[in-house]
Nucleic acid binder design. Structure first.
Length: 766
DNA sequence: GAACCCATCATTTTT
DNA sequence: TGATGGGTTC
């Protein structure tokens, strides 16, 4: 039996053992929050005799969920695998896969990610004939997502925006967007939450099922919950009120994606009988670091009163350096990393934190120069890679025939002669007849809309049907191999024989490995569960580099929840951090959120914290001359020393392991940078000619130059009546001979005057 | 239909 | 600076 009281401090123990009613644990940075949650779960099971089955623990990230689960399994002797430890989103998927049909949905829905969302939004805007410059996909998705977070339907939204022209238009886009998702049998991330809420509201028996089951509910990072999540938790906990939320209002840094700090600040209003326990002892940082953090965050108003303390020694002072330029800052960081590692620190003990991803480049360059291995967190992830999205598109389309979006993505990839205009026509037909795109594709002969491509479309339909049969058999890896083979996707890349293509092939093989792995780990793996894993557990860093001991580079946001003995916070400049956007915002909380972010950054450091700025920085291609961040001024002078900025000229590099530190040749996050440096160090060109590799471009057309028709004969002349495949009838106004072609001007009866090339326009004399 | 050129525009991000 | 998208050119 665990000796709980011995393993926890008095406050932690109190938080662990209070189970009478709603409980708010205000857990400061480094105060042993996860320890409390896991022990609480153990306490419920081992001491209170609660069935693991009756416990639910909700986190935000899969990483947190996995870690929690592992720790609970270690702690509890038996039955811990029956505890539901899950992210909000996977929990909702699990519920919806079972009951979505109760509110009129299909349980095999597809999950749309940000890119799918943008594509749908774009179509919606286009369909409504709105100005695409003014109503950008990104903006539309943001507005829709915001609406959904507040549980507003398109109608609600319209009602709210009545009289506001732009708002009304967005409401129309939202409505159109919803229509499309529904037609495609797809849910976006917000829907996962909202539809679950809807299900609970409309089907009391389903709600009751889960309410009865989950006697004890724990929510981690409660300050990050949005309104939908708040409602969801409220519904779930309404019966037993065994709700325990853990969070830190000072670490709320996700307002921009809907987090409502009010949820934690007003917890006691929502649950008047709630017990509040503060965890203020910090086990992570030195006294100086902690005091600096406390001093900075004290400048925020409207926070829960708390103050972290530690019984650790004061430690080294914080070090602030103002470098002359961003390059020097990067060089200075590299130099200090080297000094630290000479002093015995592991690279993996160190992290460089910055406000924006764009700042990583300069740091990366100097680390490469010095041969310091690093790990870049964030940026473009594995599942964002084009080839991976394509192949996942196949899988999605196979799993959900109604998913027009995925089908449209892959129908001509690799190129198989089903061009845009054919797809366009088929989609129009589908829309008009209430069919899915695949319905049209599969019945192309009857529909007769594909013209000369009909054969190609038919072959494609047969191939897809074959994949579905293969999918039925249940072996996912075989299915994947089958797709690669029948589509020729992998081979076409290999034939291309470029470094970039080889990187893509590696990624494709990596996805194959992941699928095989997934099958081994999950006995009852299905195509749907695989896709769910891919959508919800898209791990952005799969670093399989041989070098384990690497410095971590990431944004302040992604650093939340982590700790490092040595931390560098770079770019401590007003306008950058706090960001220009925040400073110019009319929302008074914007600057406070930046300050919280600063607090998060400072509290990542265990022993040593370096802060720095550059007096000259290239931002968006322009030179700027920043001032020191106001946050620096908020750190008491006695805790921080300002150090000189002198650095060696940075080029005393050891070239030896440069290659290793940039994850060789593999196309990854910032993929082509690898090549750039390769060449630099290889002594040839500094920057390779850009391989813009648009798909249809050099990627699939492997080195076979297109044959130009040199002796092109026109069977019409100026004044003739001709017919065009798209524009219909028209009169030829002029013919200008070009190198290997003719530019023909035609006035069409309906479409007006057009210029086109004879070789492509395929005009027929009438 | 696809390569290429030019204008534009830039936080933070998980699910 | 760089990525991206639209328009132009063959």
């Amino acid at each position: 039996m665990i000796d709980f009281e011995k393993k926890l401090n008095p406050r932690q123990w109190e938080a662990c053992s209070y189970i009478e009613g709603p409980l708010l644990i205000l857990a400061g940075a480094g105060s042993g929050k996860t320890r409390v949650i896991t022990h609480r779960i153990a306490y419920l099971i081992e001491v209170m005799g609660v069935k693991p089955y009756n416990i639910l623990a909700i986190t935000f990230t899969n990483k947190a969920a996995t870690e929690m689960k592992t720790r609970v399994l270690k702690l509890v002797e038996e039955g811990a695998e029956d505890v539901w430890v899950s992210t909000f989103h996977s929990m909702c998927v699990r519920i919806l896969r079972r009951f979505y049909n109760k509110i009129g949905g299909q349980n095999n829905f597809t999950i749309y990610d940000a890119d799918d969302q943008k594509a749908v939004a774009k179509e919606a805007v286009r369909d409504l004939k709105l100005d695409e410059k003014q109503y950008t996909p990104k903006g539309m998705v943001a507005a829709i997502s915001k609406a959904k977070e507040d549980l507003l339907s398109p109608e609600d939204y319209m009602a709210r925006e009545l009289g506001n022209f732009r708002g009304e238009q967005i409401a129309r886009v939202y409505k159109e967007y919803e229509k499309r998702l529904e037609k495609n049998n797809a849910l976006d991330f917000d829907d996962l939450l909202n539809k679950t809420v809807q299900l609970f509201m409309e089907c009391p028996e389903v709600l009751d099922l889960y309410q009865t089951r989950f006697r004890y509910i724990m929510v981690d990072e409660y300050q990050d919950t949005n309104n939908a999540q708040f409602v969801l938790v409220k519904l779930l906990a309404a019966k037993h009120r065994g709700l325990c939320v853990v969070g830190d209002d000072d670490q709320s840094i996700y307002k921009f994606r809907g987090a409502n700090i009010g949820n934690i600040l007003n917890f006691e209003d929502e649950y008047p009988d709630a017990e509040v326990i503060k965890l203020e002892q910090n086990y992570r940082s030195t006294g100086n670091i902690l005091n600096a953090a406390n001093a900075v965050i004290a400048n925020n108003v409207g926070r829960k009163d708390k103050s972290l303390w530690t019984d650790r020694e004061a430690g080294e002072k914080l070090k602030f350096t103002a470098y002359e330029s961003d390059r020097e800052e990067a060089a200075g960081v590299a130099k200090r990393i080297i000094l630290q590692s000479k002093a015995g620190r592991q690279n993996s003990d160190m992290a460089v934190l910055y406000r924006t991803n764009a700042q990583s480049r300069a740091i990366e360059e100097s680390l490469v120069r010095e041969g310091i291995p690093y790990r870049l967190v964030g940026g473009t992830g594995f599942y964002d890679r084009r080839e991976i999205r394509d192949l996942v598109g196949y899988l999605k389309s196979i799993a959900n025939p109604a998913d027009d979006q995925s089908l449209a993505r892959i129908i001509n990839v690799p190129r198989r002669g089903i061009g845009d205009s054919t797809v366009q026509k088929m989609r129009e037909y589908a829309d008009q007849h209430g069919m899915s795109l695949f319905d049209v594709v599969a019945n192309i002969q009857n529909v007769g809309v594909a013209g000369r491509s009909a054969g190609k479309v038919e072959a494609f339909a047969d191939m897809m049907k074959g994949f579905r049969e293969e999918a039925e058999k249940g072996n996912l890896h075989l299915l994947y191999m089958d797709i690669l083979e029948k589509t020729d996707y992998r081979n076409l890349l290999l034939e291309e024989n470029t470094e970039e293509a080889r990187g893509r092939v590696e990624n494709i093989d990596e996805l194959g490995n992941k699928i095989a792995e997934f099958e081994m780990e999950n006995e009852d793996a299905t195509l749907l569960s695989l896709l769910e894993e891919i959508s919800l557990v898209a791990d952005t860093n799969d670093d399989d580099g041989n070098e384990k001991d690497r410095v971590t580079l990431m944004t302040l946001h992604s650093a939340k929840g982590l700790e490092f003995p040595v931390v560098f916070m770079v770019g401590m400049e007003d306008q950058l951090f706090p960001s220009k956007m925040a400073l110019e915002s009319d929302d008074p909380d914007a600057e406070e959120e930046e300050r919280r972010l600063c607090y998060v950054g400072i509290t990542r450091a265990m022993d040593i914290l370096y802060l720095s700025m550059a007096k000259q920085r290239i931002l968006n291609g322009v030179f700027t001359y920043p001032k020191k961040s106001r946050f620096i001024d908020e750190i008491p002078k006695n805790l921080m020393e300002t150090t000189g900025a002198k650095v060696d000229d940075g080029f005393a590099a050891s070239v030896s392991n440069v290659a290793d530190s940039i994850s060789r040749g593999k196309t990854k996050a910032r993929g082509d940078q690898g090549d750039k440096y390769y060449d630099e160090w290889g002594g040839s060109t500094f920057q390779k000619k850009k391989e813009k590799g648009s798909y249809a471009g050099d990627m699939y057309v492997s080195g076979k130059p297109k044959e130009k028709k040199t002796d092109f004969v026109l069977n019409y002349k100026v004044g003739d009546q001709v017919r065009h495949i798209k524009y219909g009838r028209g009169t030829v106004l002029g013919i200008i001979p070009e190198k290997e072609d003719y530019e023909v001007t035609v006035r069409f009866d309906s479409a007006g005057e057009k210029k086109m090339f004879a070789s492509l326009a395929k005009l027929r004399k009438v």
